Simulated assay, not measured.
Amino acid sequence: MSRVVVAVGATSGIGRAAVREFARRGDRLVLAARAPRTLEEVRVECAAEGAEVLTVPTDVTTPGALDALAAAAVDRFGRIDVWVHTAAVTAYGRFDQLPARVFDQVVRTDLLAAADAARVALRHFRAAGSGTLILTGSVLGHMTAPYLSSYVAAKWGLAGLVRTLQQELRDSPDIHVCLVSPGSVDTPIYQRAANHLGHVGRPPPPVTTSRRVARAIVACADRPRREVSVGRLNPIMRLGFTVLPGLYDLLVGPLMRRLGIADRPAPAHDGVVFAPDPASESVRGGWLPDLAHLARRTAALPGEVGARVLRRAR
């Protein structure tokens, strides 16, 4: 029997890639995000894979919104088997120059809303006796980087919350809480970030794909794990942060300025921290080549060349 999957943050980046993977598996989907127009686009994508889909426009920072989302899911499908929470925003800027309202909203979205999602999901899972909650952390939930104070604070808090929930659920072996922690990912979150730094942010290499993280999420739904790290250098960076803190702190600033910040100037703006931008919502951020498109173009080349030769021969 197909699962009922609630996916929050379904219109962009990792969340959008994940719901496509669930749709291919035949799961029934409840999709939530702030932008109704983009939600409809994702519904069509998932329906094309044969999935049954309900969309619920949801701002995770609105009191009661996640309770209403859960109620809509149960009303439509009768239960919730998996809850995937990928909704997140970020902001660039030195802590003392980042407006307090921006810092607070990032923490409200990335940590407090995730906690609210956990509260709602676990209530349903306790009643049912089973269920899987998958939260999206970050390698920056285990280490730090300058100019991302609000995001780092939120992700460290989320990692602590997940560990606590896992301890509290030891009496419920069929209820699982998983944390998927990627490093740099090719998503639009960097372009969509609030920026009070003066220069555009970018993902430091190595950069992985949204689909790779999405597959890790689906794998947790299939076989729950406490935490999954996605990123080749994540273990090395975490080790350096823990074992060689002095050297780490010496190097992280210059490396961030060289690899994580572009030379291109940026005026101060709030990005999508307070309001969505449907035009910028997509799976990819453009930081990696689109290998699938390249493969399709390469496969089509012989036919195109042959057609041109025939046209000239005539």
Rank of each mutant, 00 (worst) to 15 (best):
E49W: 03
H85K: 00
G201I: 10
E49L: 10
I175K: 00
S280R: 15
P254Y: 06
V44T: 14
K155V: 02
I236K: 12
L158Q: 00
L165D: 05
Q167P: 01
L244T: 15
D277W: 13
V84C: 03
L135F: 01
V84L: 09
V180P: 09
G78F: 05
A70F: 02
R211W: 10
G141F: 02
V89T: 15
D186K: 06
Q97K: 14
A266S: 15
S2V: 09
A214V: 04
C46G: 03
S149N: 13
H196M: 06
A279F: 06
V53R: 01
A113G: 08
A113I: 01
G64W: 07
A279D: 14
L133P: 04
S12K: 10
H176R: 13
V305A: 11
T38K: 15
G160E: 09
R101P: 05
E227T: 12
V120P: 00
L310R: 15
D59L: 00
L294R: 12
G26M: 12
V218L: 13
I80R: 02
V218I: 10
T242E: 11
D59V: 00
G286V: 08
A300V: 08
L122P: 05
S181D: 08
P36K: 01
L250A: 15
A279V: 08
W83M: 00
Y248M: 01
V200G: 04
G198H: 12
L310M: 13
F103M: 11
A72V: 00
D222V: 06
S181M: 02
L247C: 10
V228H: 12
A313W: 14
I261P: 10
P265M: 02
P278W: 01
R163Q: 10
R170F: 02
L291W: 10
G183L: 05
A51D: 00
F274G: 10
D116G: 04
R284T: 14
V44Y: 03
